[in-house]
Write a protein that binds this DNA or RNA. Sequence first.
RNA 1: GCGCCCGUAGCUCAGCAGGAUAGAGCACCGGUUUCCUAAACCGGGGGUCGGAGGUUCGAGUCCUCCCGGGCGCGCCA
Length: 596
Amino acid sequence: MTRGDITTAADPTRLLEEAFREAIVAVLGDDYRHVDPIIRCSQNPAFGDYQANSAMSLAKHAGLKPRALAQQIAEAVAKNLRGVAETPEVAGPGFINIRLKAEALGKMLEALDTPQLGVHRDPNPHTIAIDLCGVNIAKQMHVGHLRSTIIGDCLARTFERIGRTVHRENHLGDWGLTIAMVLWSLTRSGDDLDTLGLEDLDKAYRHAQAECRQDEAAAAEAKATLIKLQQGDTETRRTWHKIIDVTMRAVYESFDLLNVKLGPNDNRPESFYRDRLKDVVEAFRVSGIAQEDQGALIVRFPDRDRPLILQKSDGGYLYATTDLAAVRRRVQELKASRVIYIVDARQRDHFRDVFDAARRIGWDRLDDGSRAELVHVPFGSVLGTDRKPLKTRSGENLPLRLLLTEAIQRATAEVRRRAENPSAPTHGLDDEALDAIGKAVGIGAVKYADLSSDLVRDYLFDLDRMVSFDGNTGPYLQYAHARVCSIFARAGVTPTDPAIKSAKLVITEPAERSLGLLLLRYPSVVAEVAATLEPHRLCTYLYDLANAYNTFYESCPVLKADRQQLRLSRLRLCNLLSRVLADGLDLLGIQTPGRM
RNA sequence: GCGCCCGUAGCUCAGCAGGAUAGAGCACCGGUUUCCUAAACCGGGGGUCGGAGGUUCGAGUCCUCCCGGGCGCGCCA
């Protein structure tokens, strides 16, 4: 490995790709310089650590026999990989299997053992905007906001981890007729606004909505209130600010409880765009992209019946109008090359229309002429164990607080139960400490359950399963991490001890090897999540990693290793593992208590 | 009616821009260990990957049709 390999030194896949590309060129000629060598991790250890799968398709293209070509590539690549891998072997229809030398594996792991943990920096200088959370003023947060917030925060952390600047855009619903209905309802009732809580606002919201639906006079009053709000009437504005304060105070508490990196600076409410809506509509009108139809202004698309409505026949604007204003700002002012919407899958059609309209008018174009990627990350509903969307008995959305409180209670109960074991490191901790751990575990459980399967699928909110310390759960991962911490406590050394930090990593046992190979995949997994916007890939990886660690720990003595060199090597490996685990969990927004 | 999404073990889910005999967890059955270790680890049974065609050297993965479930569809957000 040369000096120039500093970034790839810890990433065998990249190293192998290079080596194979050269080998392919050596065998087939320069025309093949840009083919993908198709390097994959082997599923089965019997086939080595990695495999190159390109020979089969290349053979067809070049008119050669697959196995014969594979043999030639294998021979050519052997030279490039001297010192790194054993002699590559051809198997099956033309797979080339590669097994890393233990020595090289140790070196790569040492190269991974940096503060960056080998994660590559994304050189793209543009920012990324993530539309997430989207709470409504005067409404409690419910399960629908949960997913958007958790997923958005996770993706934001991932992008920040690879060096991108992220704008978290909390597109608050603080404007429009629904808000006006609440304001009207509150002024009429004459309640003391200073004593109002979010539950009261929530109630007013529902009552006002029901009343306006049935009673035309009420609807007219609400509309009048909207006009007062729009015209800046002092009293109305005062009430408006008040309900925003009350709502957001509770929302910030939820953010804090959830351990998401969101705050007042991330608020970009609908009202922020209110002065821009006229321009949006005008731009579409003068460009001819939008047309009048039955008194409304709409955009038609050649490939679908459904039009996008920009302006109602009464002159009012719609949420599509605001969304277009937001796209424009995010690309042109925030300079985002990716604008990502974390919104319920049911709004797929809406975003398709909005994005297509934005592209047609060119609002996805950046200064340098490139086009920003507008992408909707759709997620499924949260279902109860009865397979129906989570609702309260009265059929309303389940408040987030209720749901989180129960998760925390369950987790805390389990933490306490385990603390009764005299050999548990948590034994004898006071209530406050145990509660703090229970909170981290409960929230971690909810988040992991949310992030660990394909986002578009509906997921079952099953507390029994998600709070369990066994299986593919948040607590299992946190537990694996805590166990590593406890080794160091027992060893009486800190992970930063120079003897550990500088120890040579020696890979001997199979379990050690599997763990090492898995650790080396971390940088590419992070990159993969950033590319695909699929956090569950990271979850699966971390779960495999925790499993590999538990197996290693079972079969490889650490503190009682028979040689001092091996002991230090394994301690260093443990430390590396714990940091990768903690780093990965942090990307998921999950905390890692030292004991649990 | 039009459109979108989903269908993998009893249950909950993976399956990495098609690659070797389809993998986990839970549950079930059996074993090891009480250990440097916080009860963890190892093994087993269980699948015509919704169905039928097609493309390919190779399909759970791509294409077409069908079945089943969910969701959306002009002035709410």
